[in-house]
Design a binder for these strands. Sequence first.
DNA 1: AGCACGCCGACT
DNA 2: GTCGGCGTGCTC
Length: 719
Amino acid sequence: MPYLRVALDVPLPRLFDYWLDSATPADIGRRVVVPFGSRRLVGVVLAILAEPEYEASAIKPAEAVLDDMPALPAPVLGLFQFCADYYQHPLGQVVHTALPTRFRDPNPYRVAEALRYHALDSVALQAQVPKRAALQQRLAQLLATPRSEAELRAAGGTAWKTVQAWLQDGRVRAEQLQPGASVAAPGPALNIEQAEAVQAISAAQGFAAFLLHGITGSGKTEVYLNAIAAVLARGEQALVLVPEINLTPQLEARFLRRFPGVDIVSLNSAVADGERAAGWVRAARGEASIVLGTRLAVFTPVPRLGLVVVDEEHDASFKQQDGLRYSARDVAVYRARQAGVPIVLGSATPALESWQNAEAGRYRHLRLSQRAVVGAQPPQWRLLSTKRQPLQDGLHARTLAALGERLARGEQALVFLNRRGYAPVMHCGECGWMAACTRCSARLTVHLRERTLRCHHCGDEAPLPRVCPGCGNQDMKPLGQGTQRLEDTLAERFPGARILRIDRDSTRRKGSFEAALQAVHAGEVDILIGTQMLAKGHDFPNLTLVAVVGADSGLYSADFRASERLYAQLAQVAGRAGRADKPGEVILQTDFPEHPLYQALLDDDYAAFAATELAERKLAGFPPFLHQAVLRAEADRLDDALAWLRQAALLAPLSEAVTVWDPVAAGMMRLANRERAQLLVQSTARSRLLAFLAEWMVALRAQKAGKVRWSLDVDPLEL
DNA sequence: AGCACGCCGACT
DNA sequence: GTCGGCGTGCTC
C-alpha cells in the first residue's frame, strides 16, 4: 500500500496524496516531510491507500515519515475531522493548529525523556548549600524525594539552573519516570455538597456532562482535585482546561502540591515551544497523568483519558478568535463523549448555553451553594444610586466614606473600573469635536501621563492636542473616567494612602503584574485600582471592600451577551472582597439600582438571572435557542466587503430551516484601516445549519475574493 | 497561504 | 537593456 494521504497546512479543503514504498498503516498519525510545489512541508499522514485518488502520474514521492512523535491516535484524528466539519475549516489546517508548533519544523524532534530528579543525599546537600540561599535550601529539601522538572521549576527563579548544576556534579540524579497509580496528598475535608459532587462525577459510567455551578469560594477546585484523584487511582489520565489568564501558575502549584511526584503537563502560551512539545509527548505516551492547559490543550492525545474538566467554562478565552474559530469547551464536550468519559464544566456564572443544557437535562446540574471555608460570609452588596446624587469626580460620597473607613482600619480596598487610560473621550465644549481614531471607527482614549491619545483597538497613537483641531478652542476637556484619572482623584482625596493601579498599561513590563500582586500581598498597598485583569481569581486576604464604578454601560448594550458577561464579571470581582474572618463589602455605583441584573447579584442568585435572561433570549430568538454563524468580510472599502457578502448571500443554498440575513457593516466598522462587514445566518436546527454551511462554503471558495478577506465563524461569541 | 510565472514602468 | 510591481493560478 504505497500511498499516503497527507494533511498539509494550506488553506485548501482537501488532502494530498504521495507515494512511499515503505508505507504501512503504522504511519497513520505520523509526521511526514513532503515536497509541495517548490516548498518542503511537514504534513501528517491521515490514511494509507492502495490506489491514489489523484492522478497517479502527478504524484510525488514523500521524503520521509518521521517517527519522532507518537502517532496521533484514531480518536484524535476523529476530533480533527469533527472540527474541520463543524467549523468549516480545512482539515490540514485543523491538524496543524492542534499540533505543538515544534512539530511544524521538518527537522526531527529529539524526544526529551520523562525524568524524575532526586538528591543522592538530601541531608548532606542541605548542609553543603549556604544557609541563606533560601531557594537552594528549598530545592535540596524537595530533592529528598523524586521530583519532576515542572515541580522543580515551580520552586522559582533559577531553580532549574541550580538543579542542572547539581546534576553535573553528581549530587543529583535523574531517573526514568515510572508511570503508574499515584497517591494524592490529603486535602481539606469536603462539605456535603462537594462530597456529593465528587461522588456523582466518580460514579459516572461512560460519558456524562456535569455543570458544576459553585458560587465564588465554594471550593470547585477541590471537587476537581478529588475527582481527578479518583481517576489517577484507577491509572487513568485527566485533561484539565483553564482560561487564558495569568492565574495558571497558582493552579499549577496547587495541583503539584496535591499530586506530588505525578507527571503534570502544563500547556499554555507561557510554556516554551520545546517544553510544550515534550509535555505533549509525555501525555500522548500515557506517561503524564494530568494535562493542565489552555484551549489548545483540548487536542492533546491522552490515551487513557478518564476525566475532562473545564474550569471557568463561561470564559470567552475558550473560543479562538482567528483561524480555526473553535470553542475549546464545546470541543471538550465532544471529546468526552467520544472517549466515553465524564466531563465537568465548572463556573460560578455558567455560560447560558451550558445553563440551558442543564435545564434541558443534557447536563447534570451540580450545585455548590456553601462557602467551603466554614464561617466564611458572602460579601455584602450595596447599590448606590447615582441618579440624583451629585458625584465627586465620579465617586459617590458613600463610596469615598467606605474607602476612608478601610484606610482607617488598615484594610485594603479595590476600586474596579473596567476602562483603562485617563478618560475615554477628548472633547471640545465649544464645537463638539471629539478625538477619533483615523484608522478605526472608535474614539481615542486620553492617556494624560504620556500626553497621548491612543486607540485601544488598533494601538495607534497621536499627541494630545493643546487646542481643539476643530475650532482652535484652548479649553479642551477629557470626558469620563478611566483608571488613570481615578488614580489621580483618589490620590487627591486620600493624600496619605498608598494607591496602586493595575491595568494593561501599568503592567506592560514583563513580571510587573506579579510584582504588583506581591506588593498587595505584602500589605504595601491601601487602595487598588483595577480593570478586568484584577477581577479574576486573585485572593487578597486583607481586602474587604470592592467598589465598582461605571458598570452600567454593560446593561443596555447592543450585544445580547453583554449582560451575561457583566454578571460574570461583577460576580467575579465581588469575590475578591472578604475572607473567612473579615466579611467583605461590595459597593456598586449605578443609575439603575432596580435593574434585575443587579438585584440578582445582590441575592447571589444566578439561577434567577439565568431564568430571566434565557426567557428573553427565547422570546427574541437568540442563542442558545437557535444556532448562528457569521460570515465576515473585510476590505479597504466598505462597499467591496458588502458587495462580496451580497454576492455570497446570492450563492447561499436554499434552505427553509436557515435564515440568511442581509449583510451589514460590523459593529466596529473600521479597524486598523480595514472596513468590515458581516452576514448572519441562523437556524433552530444545528444539523441543518451545518449542512447549509458545508454546501455554502463550496460555492464561496469557488468565488474569487479579490481584495476581500473573509472568514466564517460558527457559534460566534461576538457579532 | 506561499510561491512562481507573467507581462508592463523607471533605473544602473 | 534589466529590476521589480503585484495580478492570477497552482500546489498531490
